[in-house]
Design a protein around this nucleic acid. Structure first.
Lengths: 141, 141
DNA sequence: TTTAAATCCAACTATTTTACTCGGGATTTA
DNA sequence: TAAATCCCGAGTAAAATAGTTGGATTTAAA
């Protein structure tokens, strides 16, 4: 029941962008450094986030990345889904295109995984980047 | 955010044993057949469940497996943990021996994963095999 | 007492996934 | 024009996954 580093690193990067949200784009290299991630690898991940419409890029010198929306309007669920795919503890309860399984037991186990899926989704969808920034403020003080 | 087949199959097998709970041990082959699992593979999994004290085995002809406790007193969380290890979306919030990470962001992302972990655990620990059997009854009628 | 039905166990393996790295091209600012 | 930066596709080593295989042991029943 583990997240891959894609989602893990991706959220770190997005949170970093939220903390540094403003006029100027943030170069990927500085995000990678602060968050302790290989910048070559992070490049791949942020490319996915860009294609998903969660960040905007500015090319050239002095370029970098900015959140595509205000931190208040980006939630963790979106970030994780874009990097890890639909939430699905097992395939047959995927949020998108669940696979069929015709088992003899009326698939009661399936309902267990559906409940797990929903509880994960509920947590992730309820937390925005702005929420996380507020939490960070609290910790600082 | 996926479970491996270990937990998936393991729960199916335990549920099968719960549905067939009684005097007689259930041979592994019949569980595997009903649940559509390779019996060689299931053998590995049930061996873990036995060592975890969740099932008892009876060797020899007419042998098989029985739940070590009544279905009411075995919950899904125990089964999953014994097969998949501690619940931990990411290592640094593992239920057991969380790994250290000294990042610059006060690890607010960490608190997100802790909440996910807790919500998964809450669901899994709240469902017993007996609950699942009752659900199965409802579906039948 | 033999046979067949079972569990038990350890080692092997093919495939897939993960977590990267690498090299080069395109774009923009100073 | 040089430097900083994003963009993109291909390659790769290591680990995890999902099994398979072969044989030893135990026990009930014929």
């Amino acid at each position: 029941m583990r997240l891959s580093t894609r989602g893990h690193y991706g959220l770190k990067a997005m949170f970093d962008l939220a903390l540094n949200y403003g006029e100027h784009p943030i170069p990927l290299k500085s995000i990678a450094e602060r968050q302790g991630i290989s910048d070559n690898y992070l490049e791949q991940l942020i490319s996915v986030l860009r294609k998903a419409g969660l960040v905007k890029s500015v090319r050239g010198a002095q370029g970098g990345y900015i959140l595509a929306r205000e931190p208040e309007h980006i939630n963790v669920g979106e970030i994780i889904r874009s990097l890890e795919g639909p939430i699905a503890p097992v395939d047959c309860v995927s949020e998108v295109e669940p696979s069929e399984c015709d088992q003899s037991d009326f698939c009661i186990t399936r309902t267990v995984w559906a409940r797990v899926r929903d509880s994960i989704a509920e947590v992730l969808d309820s937390i925005s980047l702005a929420d996380m920034c507020r939490d960070a403020e609290k910790v600082k003080v």
